[in-house]
């Protein structure tokens, strides 16, 4: 005769199934959200779409240049998305206006990022002419991705110097 399974064993089974279900559900929803958000960026960056609009204004009187980006980010996923663009430089002539946006699922956020180089000519000739940019995306609260990009190449004298 088959022995009866004790209640404790049933309780352990319930916990096991619950834990496995929770892991599967979270993993599936995070993977789905990451894929959807990635698809949103990809289609936004493709030709014809104006997800990123950049602008550079050079002031001839002061020699300063302001480089700005307006970035429109859609959140097609299931979790809130935090996007930020920031920069830093050892050079005192560089000023960054970092941008961050919390975007709820199904909505889109707009980031206004700008950096100003007080004296472009001096900056390009200096030893510490390096601007480190960081684009960070957080799929709250589970995962975040940050990409470090060199923003120095955005700074140019009029005429392409």
């Amino acid at each position: 005769m088959k022995p009866r399974t004790p209640r404790g064993i049933w309780a352990l089974r319930v916990v096991t199934v619950t834990v496995a279900l929770a892991v599967v559900v979270v993993a599936a929803t995070v993977a789905y959200s990451a894929y959807e958000d990635y698809s949103g960026f990809r289609s936004g960056l493709s030709a014809g779409n104006k997800m990123v609009v950049g602008n550079a204004v050079y002031d001839q009187a002061t020699g300063a240049e302001t480089i700005s980006f307006n970035v429109t980010v859609p959140n097609r996923g299931l979790y809130p998305l935090n996007v930020s663009i920031s920069c830093s430089s050892a050079s005192p002539s560089v000023q960054c206006r970092n941008a961050t946006s919390d975007i709820l699922p199904g909505q889109q956020g707009v980031l206004h990022f700008s950096m100003t180089v007080a004296d472009v000519q001096q900056f390009l000739g200096s030893a510490d002419r390096q601007i480190n940019g960081t684009v960070a995306m957080t799929l709250a609260p589970f995962a975040s991705l940050s990409v470090g990009v060199n923003f120095t190449s955005f700074v140019r004298l009029p005429g392409g110097a």
Partner: peptide, 8 residues
């Protein structure tokens, strides 16, 4: 590139 997913 940095990827952080401690909670996962």
């Amino acid at each position: 590139i940095g990827l952080s997913f401690q909670l996962l």
